[in-house]
Amino acid sequence: MLAKLNEGRNGTISKRTLDGFLVSVNLVAAANNTVLAATQYGTGTGFDASQVNFKVILRRGGKEFVVMHDNLGILGAFNSILNGGKNWSLGTDIVRPASAAKHHSIRTLFLGLGGHLNLATGDEIYFEVNVGRNSFGSAIDSNQSYVQINPHYSIGKEVGIFVTRSNVIQQSATREAVNLGDAVTRIAFLNMEDTGVSNQIIQNLNFSSDRVDGSFNFAELIALNDIWFRNSQWLKYFDYASGGSDVDSYQPAYPQSFVFHNEEAVDNCSVDITFDPSKVNAQKNYIVYQSFLSSKEIIAKAAAMSEKHAAENISKLPVTL
């Protein structure tokens, strides 16, 4: 599904299994020898991912479940903070800028649902993308640039209906306490503004649940990133300023974004964060999390599918004794 500037597109999926969506943003500079800026958030310049909205709704049994509904800046940061940060922030160069060539870059992203979704007869996924009029700034050729989003089909059993939610931190806030509920599998604090760590926003973060708790100051949150970012690829990019050499760096686009839970599902989950209010700007800081809804029917179906697949796998084994 492809959408250009100031366009909206939608689609439906049925009788398939999927675990997310593949996003690619095709960007072409407006002028020769002009470097496309990194993916932006809330600036209205370059490619501003906050101006692209994406929605996924599951229709099942006469009900609608909002799987995700947010701007692509928040969804992109949440899904690329551990893996694929370079691909989303700086992209892959198709054509590098030159005196007779426009910079052509593709920003890519995998938007994970959190688990597999098995669409039975009568189930339907509705998904929609809207590319706002300020998505591509003046440095981008909007006639040649577009956003493409397609489902990623998978093999696996559904254990629940995963949802992704975000809570915005108000400007000049000193504290934010949020009850995230049950079956929470992943939580992150996203700062979509600071590219360094000198303006420390978080003073302390407390996380509690039925199975694990934690209290972290700013330095300890950085240490947590050392744990999670070991799974992330290097941010390898082309350094035009120094004459065109490849540079490797582990620093993410927004180093004051932190994942502080990314393990088993926890219940009775809550987060309590204290801030330096002078550093908290409007619409730049978020708590984003994934959780899932389940039922006896979903659990029973998952157990039956596991048993069926185990029997099939055994039947396929070669008999040599």
Score class of each variant (00 low, 15 high):
T17Q: 06
A38K: 12
E7M: 14
E176C: 10
I106R: 12
H309N: 15
I299V: 15
R165S: 02
A100E: 12
S135R: 09
S24T: 11
V212M: 12
K308G: 01
R96E: 04
I287E: 04
N79L: 07
K284Y: 11
E158P: 00
Q233A: 05
T12N: 14
R9P: 02
T121R: 02
P318H: 09
F207R: 04
G244M: 11
A30H: 04
D276M: 02
I202P: 03
F110Q: 03
K284E: 14
Q171P: 11
S242A: 11
V212E: 08
D19G: 08
D272M: 03
T108R: 15
K301D: 15
R16S: 08
F65L: 09
L293V: 05
Y41Q: 00
R175F: 08
N179L: 02
K296L: 10
K157G: 04
A253C: 00
S198R: 04
G243K: 07
E7R: 12
W228Y: 15
F218Q: 07
T164V: 06
A241D: 15
Y126T: 10
Q40C: 06
N268M: 07
E220V: 05
N130V: 13
T121H: 02
Q290V: 00
D248M: 10
L190M: 07
H261Y: 10
A30I: 10
R96D: 06
S135W: 04
V23I: 07
N285E: 13
V23G: 05
I74W: 10
A77W: 14
T92Q: 11
N130G: 09
K63I: 03
A98M: 07
G61P: 01
V163A: 14
L205D: 04
G91F: 03
G196N: 15
S80P: 14
G91W: 07
N191Q: 14
N53H: 07
T34P: 00
T12G: 01
D246W: 15
T174H: 04
G156E: 08
T185W: 06
N191C: 03
W234L: 07
N83Y: 11
Q171H: 05
G11V: 04
T195Y: 08
F110I: 07
N167K: 14
K279M: 09
I155T: 12
N143D: 13
A253G: 09
F65R: 00
H261G: 06
N313T: 14
K102R: 15
V288L: 09
I140K: 03
R165C: 03
G91V: 08
A310V: 05
Y289K: 07
F260W: 02
E193F: 14
F189E: 03
A253S: 08
A265C: 02
F21C: 05
T34G: 02
G85T: 09
I273C: 03
K157R: 08
T39F: 05
Q40E: 10
R186C: 01
D93L: 15
D276E: 04
S270M: 03
L27R: 08
F78S: 12
A311R: 13
L180V: 06
S315L: 12
L190S: 12
G61Q: 05
D70I: 08
T121S: 08
Q171S: 06
S208F: 06
S257C: 06
A303R: 13
F189H: 09
F292Q: 03
I298T: 07
V35H: 10
A302T: 11
Y240T: 15
R165M: 07
F189Q: 04
